[in-house]
Structure formats: C-alpha cells, structure tokens
Nucleic acid binder design. Structure first.
Length: 521
RNA sequence: GUCCCCGUAGCUCAGCCUGGAUAGAGCACUGGCCUCCGGAGCCAGGAGCACAGGUUCAAAUCCUGUCGGGGACACCA
C-alpha cells in the first residue's frame, strides 16, 4: 500500500488540505480512488470515536477539480473518488507519451551495474541458470526505464582449478578415458573433443581455452534467444595485475590482516576469520570478490551494484559487505539479489541438476520446448526469493494456455481492433467512456508508471508480470463488453482512443519484461 | 548447533518491507456464454493465511517461540 503522496505518479495530487496527512490509494475500487485512515489512528489520542473525526475531517475538505466526491465509511475511513472526466482526459496524454509512457526518473542518471549469469564457460547453461538470467535482465530493464545508467556485466572466473579440470576432462574424452576425479562429463565434451582432434590440439591448457571458447559461444547463443545481451565481460584474471596487491596492502594498513597456518586471513571482528590467500598462494573466492567489487565501486565508479547470485552463495553476502565497509565503501550500495533454487520435475520425478555431471535440463532444451516468451514470463510470475518448482511436462502441455498467452492475446485483440478502426475520423466523445469496464481499464492503466517505479525501488521484476496480468484481464473484459467499432462514430472514436492507450500500456509492459507483443498470433 | 529464504485454495503462486474495510490470480473441477471487432476469451460456483503466544482500535502483514521444507556455515567453486 502506497503511503507517500509524492509517489502517486501519473495521478493528480490529492486535495491539498489532506496532502499533509496520509493518503493511500484505495485497494478496493468500490472504496474510491484514495483512502485516508488517519481518523482511525487519531481516535485513541483524541479520545474520540474515529467515525466522528472522519466526518469532521471530510467536511472540512473542499474538493478541487477532478474529484467527484468524498465520503466517510465505518469504522473511520475517508474515501475520495476521482471524477470520470478526469480519468477519461488522461487517455490523450497516455497515447502521446508513446514509448515513454511509464518511464520515470527515479535514477536521475546515476550509474548502476547489474552483474548476472556469470556462469563459467565449462558447460552449457542449464535451465536453473535461466531464472537468474531473466531476473537480472529485467531488473536492468526496469532500472533503465527508471532513469538509471545501467551496465550489464558477465563475470568469468577464468583462473584456477575449474578451468584446469575442464581441460583435463576434454583431454580424457579425446583419449577415450574416463573423466578425472570431480571432472566434467557431459555429452558436449565429445563435440569439443571432436573439434580439438580436427585441430590436432592435445595440450590440456590449450584444450581448456578452446573448450571455454566453444562453450561461451553456446552461452551467448542461448542468452541471445532469451533476449539477453551483456555490455561487458569481466575476466577474473584482470584482477591480478596489481589491484590484488594494492587491496591487500590497504587491508593490512587497516589492521584487518592476520597470517597464520601459512595462509593470509581477513580479520572479521567476529570469532571466525576468513582466508584470503590460501597456503598454496592462490586467492580464495572471498578475496577475488573483494578485489572485484572494489574495482566496480572505486575503479569504475558505479554508484550502485546489483549482483544476481544463486541462493547457495548466501553466506558470502555478509562478509563481502563487511570487507567493503572496512575499505570505506557503503555496503548499502551493493545489492545482492538471491535467486532461490528452481527444482525441475519431469515425468512426476525430481530431476537432479548438476553442471559437472552434465545432467539436468539444459536451457537450450527448454527454449526449444516452451520458447523464450513463456520462459521469461514464467520466471517473472514468481518473486526471486521464493523457491519454485518447474514441471517440464506441464510447461510443454500448457504451452497454449500459459499466462503469457493471456497477455499477448489481449494485445493482439487490441491491435486487431485498431486495424479495423483505422479509417475512423470522427471526434472522440471521451465522456461516453463511462461503463465500469472502461473506467476500470483506465484506472489500471494509469497505475502503470507506479508499477514501474515500485518495481525499480524494490528491484522486484515479478511485480511487472502481476501488473500485466491484471491489465490483460481488464482488457479482455473491456473487449467482451464494449464493442469498439460501431455505427456510433463519436463513441467509436473514443473507444479507439482507449484501445490505443491500453495497447500501448500492454506493449510497454510486455516490452519491459522482454516479452514480445504480437499483433496477431 | 548458528544464520538466510520459504510455509496463503486440491496444485503453482501474489499480497508481508510501509498493519486497515468482505485475503487475490492462474491451473484443475462444475455450470453458463459465439445473429456482433479473434472463444488462446467472458460470466458464475466452492475452498485458504502451518501452529501458539504477544503488540495494536485493527495482524496474512510487526515481535517471540514451535513445527515443517530448502539453502548456507571449507585453505570448494
């Protein structure tokens, strides 16, 4: 429930007399457009019945133009209703806003980086990667629509054990030997082995980069099909050209470094210190994360950084923020979106997801089966911090009544009507858009800018999908109950204007989610 | 054992941050709706806030505890 008056963007300010008190948007249309609960809250302090306070307060308010009426409801609410004419009049400004309808300037040009996917190129993307990919991408889109300067980054851990293991695994595959302990064993290794053979490549290190290159191509391909592109790839190795040493020096100067057992530790201040540099001289993930984030904030100057991480990295958040704070960076500037696990069910059975073993459902396979639009919408219909189950069979079977088609169909219907009414030239009689369906549609439409800014503030992409669903439902009801193109030219023109505004809103909403808005389907 | 996320309708999920007026969708099920812009649609129906305390005029929402599911607590990545 919105509490602050200023965030009711796109809606007229409530009457000045009550702007100073708390005005909320009514949650139930039958209560009006705005509601005030202040009398209930004041009742105790004033030691008077809330209904009396409400009546007096309501009586003292002179409604300015645009407002129809103010009424009191037990046990002490004040409800305020907008004039239909005000709602109708908004259609023109919606239509003329075009693609910009719904955008806001919350970010005021501030720079923010969204780092997401960042899977190592040792195996193709799995279905489980898709959730973070979609959430990260849509978070970036929402921030862009809210006036932030956004950069999308893909981080590759191109140093260390996994890459060596990957090379060894390819080599083993070429030689027809079993994969090394803890190595990779998916079918795709055979393709890489084939490629390596054709090039006469046998050196494990060369094999790992050859394989990584091959896999990364597939990753870009899958992401491309999902409508996702990154602005920049960041290689872990680039952290080790001085930044690592400088950071260690700084931490040491801050007296946060301890050496023991042959390793170098970060003093956390709590019981348990954390290893930064292992006994074998290699930095831990914790260390590279510190270097990396220092580089983001100090090196590149991002004001905010959003990391999209799997829930299994949850333990890392606290200590990374602690280390950043130590280095003088406000940890609130780093926002970590924890993407909870997606479990996959197929044939009524849980499917195990393991990248190294190469089992599980690949993203490519899911893209082939359900398509990018349905896949994106599916993930957006869940909040990222809730675990979810995905039934593959259900997704395939339901592909024609997937929620995404509901929204896309609403858009196609409107587009169809607009094509049909393209020749209309009469002046629109907007005041005749007075049915419950038409006014309801306008009300929902006018909430679109708030849906975007609220999603941006909370960084919760799923809000868009739920808004879109609601909008689509209202569109379908309007379509069913209000025939647009008729003999009545003035009404036709008015409804065409409403149709234009609704189609635009739906298209912008789908567009922000990276879902297509087809004119026919 | 400590920490994080989750527990809302038969199933999959919103709502919780910022407490308000009969708790919302989709799927499934039941019954209606095409002389009329696309039935991938519309209308109607039943059923739910894990449990127990607390705070409050008011709790799905805030606090504490219990139970249940998942995850994290490495010189792994």
């Amino acid at each position: 429930m919105r509490r602050s008056v200023v965030s009711l963007s796109g809606w007229p300010d409530p009457p000045p007399a009550i702007s100073a008190v708390i005005v909320e948007r009514a949650q139930n249309p039958s209560h009006g457009d705005y509601s005030v609960t202040l009398p209930l809250k004041l009742a105790k302090t004033l030691r008077r019945p809330p209904l009396k306070i409400a009546t007096e307060l309501a009586g003292a308010i002179a409604l300015p133009a645009g407002f129809a009426r103010i009424e009191v409801a037990p046990p002490g609410f004040i409800n305020i209703r907008l004039e239909a004419s005000w709602l109708q009049a908004q259609l023109d400004s919606v239509v003329s806003a075009g693609d910009a309808w719904g955008r806001n300037d919350l970010g005021r040009g501030r720079s923010v980086q969204v780092e997401f996917v960042s899977a190592n190129p040792t195996g193709p993307l799995l279905f489980s990667h898709a959730r973070g990919a979609v959430v990260g991408d849509v978070a970036a889109r929402i921030l862009e629509a809210s006036g932030y300067a956004v950069q999308r980054e893909y981080y590759i851990n191109d140093k260390g054990k996994q890459m060596r293991l990957f090379g060894d695994s390819i080599k083993a595959r070429i030689l027809g030997e079993p994969a090394p302990e803890g190595g990779y064993s998916g079918d795709y290794l055979s393709d890489i082995a084939e490629l390596a053979r054709s090039r006469g490549e046998m050196d494990a290190e060369r094999l790992s980069s050859l394989g990584a290159e091959w896999v990364q191509e597939r990753i870009w391909e899958d992401l491309g099909r999902l409508g996702i592109r990154h602005d920049r790839v960041f290689l872990e190795t680039s952290l080790y050209t001085g930044l690592d040493r400088e950071t260690m020096v700084r931490l040491r100067a801050l007296d946060r470094i301890v050496e023991k057992d042959g390793a170098i530790w970060f003093r956390t201040g709590s019981e348990k210190d954390e290893v930064l540099i292992r006994r074998d001289g290699y930095p831990t993930y914790f260390a590279s994360d510190i270097f990396y984030h220092l580089e983001k904030f100090e090196g590149r100057g991002f004001e905010r950084v959003i990391d999209v991480w799997g829930a299994d990295h949850q333990g890392q958040v606290g200590r990374l923020k602690d280390a950043l704070a130590t280095l003088g960076i406000d940890p609130a500037r780093l926002i970590v979106l924890m993407i909870q696990l997606v479990s996959v069910k197929r044939g009524g059975e849980a499917v195990r997801m393991s990248k190294r073993a190469g089992v599980g459902v690949s993203l490519k396979e899911m893209l082939d089966e359900v398509g990018p639009d349905a896949l994106r919408y599916f993930f957006l219909l869940r909040s990222a911090d809730a675990q979810m189950e995905f039934d593959v069979d259900l997704a395939k079977r339901q592909s024609s009544d997937n929620p995404v088609y509901y929204a896309q169909y609403a858009h196609a219907r409107l587009a169809n009507v607009l094509a049909l009414g393209a020749a209309a030239t009469a002046a629109p009689a907007l005041e005749r858009l007075d049915s419950e369906w038409e006014l309801d549609l306008i009300r929902i439409m006018l909430r679109w800018p708030d849906a975007v800014s609220e999603a941006a503030e909370a960084i919760e992409p799923h809000r868009l999908a739920f808004y879109t669903d609601e909008l689509a439902a209202s569109v379908h009801r309007f379509y069913k109950n209000c025939r647009v193109v008729t003999e009545d030219e003035a009404l036709t023109a008015a409804r065409l204007q409403l149709t234009r505004a609704a189609r635009l809103t739906l298209a912008n909403a789908l567009g922000l989610m990276g879902v297509s808005a087809p004119a026919r389907m």
